[in-house]
Nucleic acid binder design. Structure first.
Lengths: 160, 160
DNA sequence: GCCGACGTTCAGTCCATACTGAACGTACTA
DNA sequence: TAGTACGTTCAGTATGGACTGAACGTCGGC
């Protein structure tokens, strides 16, 4: 792997790490991001210079997150992976889901805990209301974005 | 600290941890979230049963993130901390910033790397365009939310 | 039906880092 | 000017988890 590419995957590794995910997941993601066609597990392992055990674990992680997906090629037992066609939507959904989990913990606290005061209750409710509002708005905006005709991709099929 | 409260802070600790932040930051945040008035560093340390060194580090982390803020009480050298009044906006901004960082790495790759094909370039550009679109939409939605009159908080000052 | 290639699993190692306790610098007080 | 109560810093420790290599089960080819 050439130096500029490894620099790119390194930055993604760091970014993934600060997000609480294994660095190699970022490297695999970065490599696939720059690759035109799907890559096999041994190809990824060799390009990145890591064990296939790591690649196996992290491809499954990324696939579970919906950021990449396996591609079956007939006449081959190998698993090929590529970036998910709807990558943007997936990554947005992931980040929104994290935020929702956070809000749900707050909501559960509000419902089950003996709160110190009405002010505290109001603070938590306010947060939950704001999240619901924003989540709905984000959902609407995403629908609109999907409707935006993509100049070049219009014919290549933005929906799978 | 009573058991249900520590259960709540534990869940937040776990949530922070999966987000790549120290668990104690989550505990401090949870405790402040349920507290009506600002808490001092030694109070936090004692309630959570952790060292004041940890509390000092993590309060500064949370303050840097804008999730909590220090309160000065005249006639006291102690630092008191409380949940940021604009907590929701802050936490949204933080999550958006993370996403932006991610998108910027992709953009930098697109600009500086010798890409394999036009398809790859288009994929990256598409991601960047989508992010810009969504970021703008989220910003507009936030402005609208601010404009939504809060029934009970209207008089207590939602702006500091 | 044997052989080889593939993906997964698991025990082991290693590294990062969260947390602690003690030492330190600082500012208010008497 | 001591004394005290802060918050911060730093070396040390320990815990979690990412990664590895080897062993395993499985499926296709000759």
């Amino acid at each position: 792997m050439d130096s500029p590419t490894s620099q790119f995957t390194d930055r993604l590794a760091l970014l993934f790490e600060t997000d609480g995910q294994p660095p190699i997941a970022g490297r695999v993601f970065g490599l696939l991001l720059l690759s035109d066609d799907a890559l096999s597990l041994p190809e990824l392992a060799q390009s990145l210079g890591v064990s296939k055990a790591s690649v196996s674990t992290n491809t499954r992680l990324l696939a579970r997150l919906g950021m990449i997906e396996p591609v079956r090629r007939e006449g081959s037992r190998r698993d090929y992976y590529r970036i998910a066609p709807d990558l943007f939507e997936r990554s947005m959904a992931l980040r929104l889901a994290r935020w929702r989990r956070f809000t749900e913990v707050i909501g559960e606290g509000r419902r089950t805990l003996p709160l110190a005061s009405a002010g505290v209750r109001e603070r938590l409710e306010q947060y939950e209301r704001a999240f619901s509002y924003m989540a709905a708005a984000i959902g609407r905006a995403m629908v609109q974005w999907r409707g935006v005709p993509s100049p070049r991709l219009a014919s290549t099929g933005s929906r799978r």
